[in-house]
């Protein structure tokens, strides 16, 4: 019964996050917010809302281990699991040097910021402010880069005068008015997210208690993998379609968001305690996985190939075995 509740709540959380972001973008467009800002924010936040919601609700309801575990576990799973599976299935994930360097460096810095504050014990409001500022800088960099790209595309389109088909990687420019339905969907999405996350955390805590599994393990694996379903479907399908920037960008962008916002916002509300094993094992594994990703991409001449993917999957399996059976 609890497992069914866990699965159903996961679906509710993921679909609610989608409905919420989708309609919020429409409202933003109607209010005249730049399409670039909306596009970048929606894609950066859209897939990560389930992790954020679960981490926030878990922390607020006293299951702090589940909250931190979900964030760190998601970040390890995103790189070692999702990118590993995607590169293995698609055969190759190509990278764009500029985008990769920016997103990867930000992911690494984010991991180091978390590790730094973990050394001081509980993560408090000071860490929270640093994290939120760091994320704002990252968003600004993303928007700046997207603006530059769009300007280049506009110049190119004008030069080539190719208007056979609509083009451009951005959302439609049609300005809609805010209607009651859109506002209703935002509210429904938000409520679904809150109720879904609450149900998700509740079933995870109960399941952990009945099965005698530590809450941290539940967060690190069950919730982390579950709440990362949007990243998995987006990364895998975009890798299979040859949309390589989207594939790798989704994972790295999500990892940055998960820590800076997924831990940063709950830490603003209350102190987030740090479990010694998270500091000595989980967080270092997360950072090492990020470094391993870059090593594999460099070895593959700026591509993550199938062998790299298999190495990443093997890394995740080894981590899971160690964490579940040796350091539970």
């Amino acid at each position: 019964m609890l497992i069914i509740a866990l699965v159903i709540s996961l679906i509710i959380v993921v679909k609610s996050a989608d409905v919420f972001v989708d309609n919020l973008v429409d409202i933003g467009a109607a209010l005249g917010i730049s399409q670039i800002i909306l596009g970048v924010t929606a894609s950066a936040i859209g897939t990560s809302l389930p992790e954020f919601g679960s981490a926030l609700i878990a922390t607020l309801s006293g299951s702090v281990d589940i909250g931190v575990g979900t964030v760190i576990g998601s970040n390890i799973w995103n790189i070692a699991g999702i990118l590993g599976i995607s590169a293995t299935v698609a055969g190759v994930i190509r990278t764009n040097k500029e985008g990769l360097n920016r997103d990867w460096l930000m992911t690494l810095i984010t991991g180091l910021i978390l590790l730094f504050f973990m050394f001081f014990g509980d993560i408090n409001w000071v860490a929270s402010i640093v994290m939120v500022i760091a994320y704002s800088i990252y968003l600004w960099l993303l928007i700046k880069s997207e603006r530059g790209k769009n300007q280049e595309d506009a110049v190119k389109d004008e030069k080539d005068n190719k208007d056979d088909y609509p083009s451009g990687v951005q959302f439609k420019q049609d300005k809609k008015s805010i209607n009651k339905k859109t506002i209703g969907f935002v509210i429904v999405g938000l409520l679904g997210l809150i109720v879904g996350c609450r149900l998700l955390v509740f079933s995870a805590v109960e399941l952990a208690s009945i099965a005698g599994i530590p809450e941290m393990i539940m967060g690190l694996f069950t919730l982390a993998i579950g709440t990362s379903i949007p990243e998995l479907v987006v990364t895998l399908s975009s890798a299979m379609k040859g949309l390589h920037d989207l594939s790798i960008g989704t994972v790295l962008g999500s990892n940055t968001f998960n820590i800076l916002i997924g831990i940063g916002i709950p830490a603003l509300i209350m102190q987030v305690p740090v479990e010694p094993l998270s500091l000595s094992f989980d967080a270092p594994v997360m950072i090492l996985t990020t470094i391993l990703l870059m090593v594999l991409i460099r070895m593959g001449k700026m591509k993550l190939n199938r062998i790299g993917g298999i190495i990443l999957i093997a890394t995740y399996v080894s981590y899971a075995i160690f964490r579940i059976f040796i350091f539970p």
Partner: peptide
């Protein structure tokens, strides 16, 4: 796949159209 965010799908289709062009 099921559970792909709608906005991400729109972005994928736009990028593939651009690539197709």
């Amino acid at each position: 796949p099921f559970l792909t965010p709608k906005k991400v799908k729109e972005m994928m289709v736009a990028e593939l159209r651009s690539k197709g062009e």
